[in-house]
Computed example of a mutant assay.
Amino acid sequence: MVSVCMATYNGAAFIEEQIRSILTQLRAEDELVISDDGSGDGTLDIICQIADDRIRLYHGNFRDVIRNFQYALSKAKGDYIFLADQDDVWLPGKVTKMIELLQKYDLVISDSEVVDEQLQQLHASFFAYFGSGKGLLKNIARSTYYGSCMAFRKSLLKNALPFPATREIGHDLWIGLVAEMIGTVYFYPEALIKYRRHGETFTSAGTGKSKRGLIKKLKGRMIMMKEVIKYYLKYKICKKV
């Protein structure tokens, strides 16, 4: 069984196109788990109008994308779990290919085609544009674990939840770091989604620009390192018991 987990908030502009691109790839027994964080722009109406029994809609009031995704993931029933953003488009064959790779790896992250609001190509490869790849220190310094392109086994999720109680580590980055510490990871070099770039979602990624000062960024990296070390030591101790 496949569970696709999506966290929504005021995504009316693009969400129907994304949901339909996902549902066309799911079987009758699969599910699309959506946790909405109090949308007020018609997002919920659009989801309800699709009227598909595979959609499981939950309502939260977190005002926090990490907690919202954590809630969606806590409701997932599938053996294979996909993360999905509310504004992208999945390309045909994504689910089939990712499940095939998950027979060998605990977590797979695919490349994506970066597009504008009208789905016109900006960059053919997000991996090449952003320098994506494995490595704990690499990804602590600059995360290349993007949930929109990620799928993993349920067994990995059990080891990744709950997420650290800090906003310095995104849900997708944390899952990726845990996978590197205790499992196997593969960056698949084929674009399986159209990753939509627009003002609200794709700001400084890959540009080297950030609104955060150096001190704040360094503090954030230190928090990440602390959480990774704490998790790794705890995991090793548990394995010995």
Rank of each mutant, 00 (worst) to 15 (best):
Q25Y: 01
L26A: 04
L26I: 02
A28C: 01
A28R: 10
D30A: 09
D30P: 02
E31P: 01
S35E: 06
D36S: 04
G38P: 08
G38Q: 10
G40M: 11
D41C: 09
T43M: 04
T43G: 06
I46W: 07
A51H: 14
D52A: 04
D52K: 08
D52R: 07
R54N: 04
I55A: 11
I55P: 03
L57M: 09
Y58R: 06
H59C: 11
N61C: 12
I66R: 14
R67E: 14
R67N: 12
F69L: 15
Y71C: 15
A72S: 13
L73T: 01
L73M: 13
K75P: 09
K77F: 02
D79A: 09
D79G: 15
Y80N: 10
I81M: 08
L83Y: 01
L83K: 01
A84V: 00
Q86S: 14
Q86D: 15
Q86T: 06
D88T: 07
W90Q: 02
W90V: 02
L91K: 12
L91P: 00
L91E: 05
P92N: 06
P92G: 03
G93D: 02
G93N: 02
K94L: 12
K94Q: 03
K94T: 09
V95E: 02
T96H: 09
K97L: 08
M98C: 12
M98I: 06
I99D: 05
L102D: 02
L102F: 05
Q103H: 13
Y105F: 14
Y105R: 01
D106G: 11
S110H: 09
D111G: 11
E113Y: 00
V114C: 07
V115L: 08
D116V: 09
D116M: 07
Q118T: 10
Q118I: 00
Q120N: 15
Q121G: 08
L122W: 05
L122Q: 15
H123G: 02
H123C: 12
H123W: 13
A124T: 11
A124I: 08
S125T: 13
Y129A: 13
S132G: 12
S132Y: 13
G135L: 10
L137N: 08
A141N: 14
A141H: 08
S143Q: 01
Y145Q: 01
G147E: 03
S148T: 04
